[in-house]
Design a binder for these strands. Structure first.
Lengths: 341, 341
DNA sequence: GTGAAAGCGCTAACAC
DNA sequence: GTGTTAGCGCTTTCAC
């Protein structure tokens, strides 16, 4: 592997000049520039990044801490981050933590070891305040999920407002017995969506019925969504609409309904969230809140970039707009003659 | 940030000794070792990896070149690679190329720049022989897809044999009009599966009918799978079974069949491949070939690790076993009275 | 068992 | 506009 000094010899200049050419420092005479470039080509020289990193004290690598790339929601965000990062000359180091706190810490240690210049965190529990310790020292940004108590830059969607949109719509449809399938995880989005659910109900003087609030597992698995729906639909007075915290859960609810001989949306309205998981592969296509995942990723990178280069007047919080999309899994409430309302 | 020499001062030893402690060189007196460790703790020192990398001429980073992490097939492999890598102290730099050759090259340049010690390639076209140029100089391993002409270590599944298994099963079921939905991409797996399809047909003296070979798009999209199925099912003498090159395509085929009023498997047998995309979320559950994605990833890392440390007698090719799993989308051929066979 | 010192390949301050 | 040189933080050889 040729080094910068090989190039210098070849071009009959000093290493400093080669370095100037490499970094486009203008103070190089065109013909010298040319000569150096020829030498670089000839030796097919590529600067050694370890050396440059050591000297510049940077890595041009960003860390992405994610619970599970297998989840398309995260995968889309990752793609957005990755594309922007590439554009700015950064590479992405991806750490799968499976939601494991020890692994999250292990990942963030990379910052201390100078293996990355900053990090984007995709799914923090609201109580992970230990993150502050790192955020105080290194550029970190939250994407999607964040810790309300901490003043760490974040990009997200307005989960509360989105849920209100959903709930207003369902209520508008005439439903009164509205259930929700939430999750056992501890994400801010989960809390906000549950709050949005309850608040909107109250606003319309509909009593919040705890039997109508059921939890799926931490990862919004299909199986747990289906099980949760069964719990809801097995009740004597069953709900006529279910607001699901994710599409996969909505899919599970629709499947459960089908197995119980209920038709969606005729007998049951189901609404999802995210719009990433097969919402339009099978009928009924799912009414859901579309999140701009890719853009969430892009925006996260931009903010992290600003943090790394401590740009003045950067955004500390960006809220991207969601889109409520009505499809086939929701319909007006119709009173059945044999039912009590 | 404290450096090794800060630690040395604190512990009243030389930097060499600290380095020895850091790297567990046995020749350090227990009490010295202890003292150094105390100093490390006290200063909460972490070695600077840029410096270590420069000195050791390694990065402990591996490159993963993938077309699209959004595809769960790749996401599972990535998880397998990542888990093993972490275990061995490596980090994973992930490059999304969208199948773009320029980006693939750009990714591999990272090797030259010493940003990674080796690379795992997830989806190469059979004719990308330019890869050899890199493979000659750097540790590279192919996962799933590979270039038959090149002598690059690889881990894969026996696509030809797996297809034979599928076809023998379908034929055994009594089907004669067997179609396939292949892909327009140029992967070795695609070629091998198509060959397996044709060869098994011939072996059983069933004529290969070109009208029964239709292509989905490069990425096996649901939409293109559905369109391909329509092309097949619109024919006057329609096939009674379709072997699909992926599960998503199988899902598309089932949907198309349903829309055309055909029941799967009663009127049409559909078989998929991979067993990663929602094969058991909706009925009929899909009969398919299960690939050990996670293990494919794990194995790839192991081989790459051996390459990097040029281990003797390492495996140059490992074939992991697939599993043919019969579910609900396939059934014996039943002659309909109004049909010609 | 431990220390001194060279050097990995680069950048940037300073000198000319 | 270009060269000389110190030094980023570590590992490792060679003394002792």
């Amino acid at each position: 592997m040729p080094t910068i000094s090989d190039v210098a010899k070849e071009a009959n200049v000093s290493v400093a000049t080669v370095s100037r050419v490499l970094n486009n420092h203008s103070s190089v005479r065109p013909e010298t520039y040319e000569r150096v470039h020829k030498a670089i080509e000839k030796l097919s020289f590529e600067p050694n990044m370890s050396a440059r990193n050591l000297r510049r004290n940077e890595t041009r690598v960003i860390l992405i801490v994610t619970p599970n790339i297998t989840n398309p929601y995260y995968a889309h965000i990752l793609t957005g981050i990755g594309d922007r990062a590439r554009e700015y000359g950064y590479s992405a180091l991806i750490y799968n933590t499976a939601g494991n706190e020890a692994r999250e810490k292990e990942a963030l240690e990379m910052l201390k070891k100078k293996k990355a210049d900053g990090a984007i965190l995709l799914a923090c529990n609201v109580n992970s305040i230990w993150i502050r310790e790192y955020a105080d020292k290194y550029p970190i940004v939250h994407c999607s999920e964040y810790i309300p108590d901490l003043d760490i830059p974040r990009v997200s969607v307005d989960n509360y407002k989105a849920t209100q949109d959903v709930m207003e719509y369902i209520i508008e449809l005439g439903h009164k017995r509205i259930a929700t399938i939430s999750s056992s995880n501890n994400y801010i989005s989960t809390h906000l969506r549950l709050k949005g659910y309850k608040d909107t109900l109250k606003k319309h003087d509909i009593e919040v019925n705890n039997d109508y609030i059921v939890l799926a597992d931490d990862e919004y698995s299909f199986k747990s969504g289906k099980a949760a729906a069964y719990k809801l639909l097995d009740q004597k007075i069953r709900p006529t609409a279910i607001f699901c915290i994710s599409d996969t859960i909505a899919l599970g609810a629709i499947t459960a309904a089908k197995e119980l001989g209920l038709q969606v949306p005729k007998d049951l309205t189901v609404v999802g969230f995210d719009d990433v998981d097969d919402t339009t592969k099978f009928h009924p296509y799912i009414t859901t809140v579309a999140q701009p995942c890719y853009e969430l990723g892009e925006e996260s990178f931009k903010i992290l970039y600003d943090c790394i280069n401590d740009t003045k007047d950067m955004n500390k919080e960006v809220i991207l707009s969601h889109k409520f999309v009505v499809r086939e899994s929701s319909a007006p409430f119709v009173k059945r003659y044999h039912e009590k309302v």
